[in-house]
Computed example of a mutant assay.
Amino acid sequence: MKDILAEIVAHKQVEVAARKQVRSIAELEQAPAFKRTPLSLSSFLKDPAKTGIIAEFKRRSPSKGLINGNVTVQEVTTAYTRYGASGLSVLTDEKYFGGSADDLQQARSFNNIPILRKDFMIDEYQIIEAKAIGADVILLIAECLSAAEVARLAQFANNLGLEVLMEVHGESQLEKATQHVQMVGVNNRDLTTFKVNFNRSCELAPKIPADKCKVAESGISDPAAIATLKQAGFQGFLIGEHFMRQENPARAFEQFVADVKAAEKVS
């Protein structure tokens, strides 16, 4: 099967080079959001009063095509916040996921919880851009970055006050987690084939460095799975497609949270 991740990264290099010509770093640094103090997602994930869920706004994906084209950023993200999301994840990749910087800026204007810029980060310019549009956290995908690149980009992000979620797909990638990485996410979806293996999170959990906040990503659709993942040591749960593919993502999230709470009372 074609390596989708390699294709996306190659396109991202061209895209970022083009954006640098349109908007300078100096201009980004003048954006009002650049001056705000970012929120700490790792702290929100550890807050027992919240769900630990990082709820995602995603219109489409390379593997599924259009997921939901009928809902607005405002109605979905404000419901996520209202019903206890610990953070928001907003796709800003346009070509493959149908997202935009404007989606994140809208989410920021309506919500006061941490926001992850979900994109394929390969350049410091994107990190400056992330802060300028109101993000609090960036994603670094270990699969497409060398250890040196992760270290450089993570430190750069921290210097701007942003936290870093480093996403891994296998044990060998854990060694890329530096002191500037606050959270390690285990993606249950193989980014080259887009198939899901839910057991991956539980297998890798004990091997994630103890000082990192643990986040399980992708393939989580059963409220009972949250309890299992918590027992494995996870504090964060990145969920997007499950809510977004419902006709009413806001109501789906509300029901999911209610079911999680009910399952925890039983256990």
Results as ranks from 00 to 15, higher is better:
residue 207 K to G: 10
residue 168 V to T: 03
residue 233 G to W: 04
residue 205 A to Y: 00
residue 226 I to G: 12
residue 171 E to T: 10
residue 188 N to T: 04
residue 228 T to E: 14
residue 215 V to L: 05
residue 167 E to P: 05
residue 236 G to F: 00
residue 229 L to R: 07
residue 218 S to D: 12
residue 215 V to T: 04
residue 165 L to C: 07
residue 195 K to V: 09
residue 164 V to Q: 03
residue 171 E to C: 10
residue 182 Q to E: 13
residue 196 V to P: 00
residue 163 E to R: 10
residue 213 C to P: 04
residue 164 V to D: 04
residue 206 P to D: 13
residue 184 V to Q: 00
residue 232 A to F: 02
residue 197 N to K: 13
residue 231 Q to G: 10
residue 161 G to M: 09
residue 210 A to C: 05
residue 227 A to Y: 07
residue 203 E to M: 08
residue 225 A to V: 06
residue 215 V to R: 02
residue 223 P to K: 03
residue 164 V to F: 02
residue 211 D to N: 15
residue 210 A to S: 14
residue 203 E to F: 07
residue 215 V to K: 01
residue 196 V to F: 05
residue 190 D to E: 05
residue 161 G to C: 11
residue 223 P to F: 01
residue 210 A to D: 13
residue 202 C to I: 15
residue 163 E to H: 03
residue 229 L to H: 08
residue 226 I to W: 02
residue 231 Q to M: 11
residue 233 G to V: 04
residue 172 S to V: 11
residue 224 A to S: 14
residue 210 A to F: 01
residue 189 R to C: 06
residue 168 V to L: 02
residue 223 P to E: 07
residue 179 Q to F: 03
residue 215 V to P: 02
residue 187 N to R: 06
residue 211 D to V: 00
residue 207 K to T: 02
residue 221 S to H: 10
residue 219 G to K: 08
residue 199 N to Y: 07
residue 200 R to G: 09
residue 202 C to V: 15
residue 175 E to S: 15
residue 202 C to R: 13
residue 162 L to A: 03
residue 197 N to D: 15
residue 172 S to F: 14
residue 233 G to K: 02
residue 231 Q to N: 10
residue 225 A to N: 11
residue 200 R to N: 15
residue 207 K to Y: 08
residue 166 M to W: 03
residue 167 E to S: 09
residue 170 G to W: 00
residue 214 K to Q: 14
residue 197 N to A: 14
residue 199 N to Q: 15
residue 171 E to K: 14
residue 191 L to Q: 12
residue 183 M to H: 01
residue 167 E to V: 06
residue 186 V to Q: 06
residue 217 E to Q: 08
residue 230 K to E: 15
residue 188 N to M: 09
residue 189 R to D: 10
residue 163 E to Y: 03
residue 167 E to M: 11
residue 219 G to A: 07
residue 187 N to D: 09
residue 169 H to Y: 10
residue 218 S to K: 09
residue 221 S to A: 13
residue 169 H to W: 06
residue 165 L to H: 01
residue 224 A to F: 03
residue 164 V to E: 04
residue 194 F to E: 10
residue 236 G to E: 03
residue 162 L to F: 01
residue 222 D to E: 13
residue 210 A to G: 05
residue 164 V to T: 12
residue 205 A to S: 10
residue 187 N to C: 06
residue 190 D to I: 00
residue 197 N to W: 08
residue 214 K to V: 05
residue 200 R to L: 15
residue 174 L to Q: 08
residue 164 V to N: 07
residue 231 Q to C: 03
residue 230 K to R: 15
residue 208 I to H: 14
residue 188 N to E: 11
residue 173 Q to M: 11
residue 230 K to S: 15
residue 221 S to V: 11
residue 210 A to R: 13
residue 225 A to K: 11
residue 225 A to I: 05
residue 228 T to I: 07
residue 165 L to E: 02
residue 202 C to M: 12
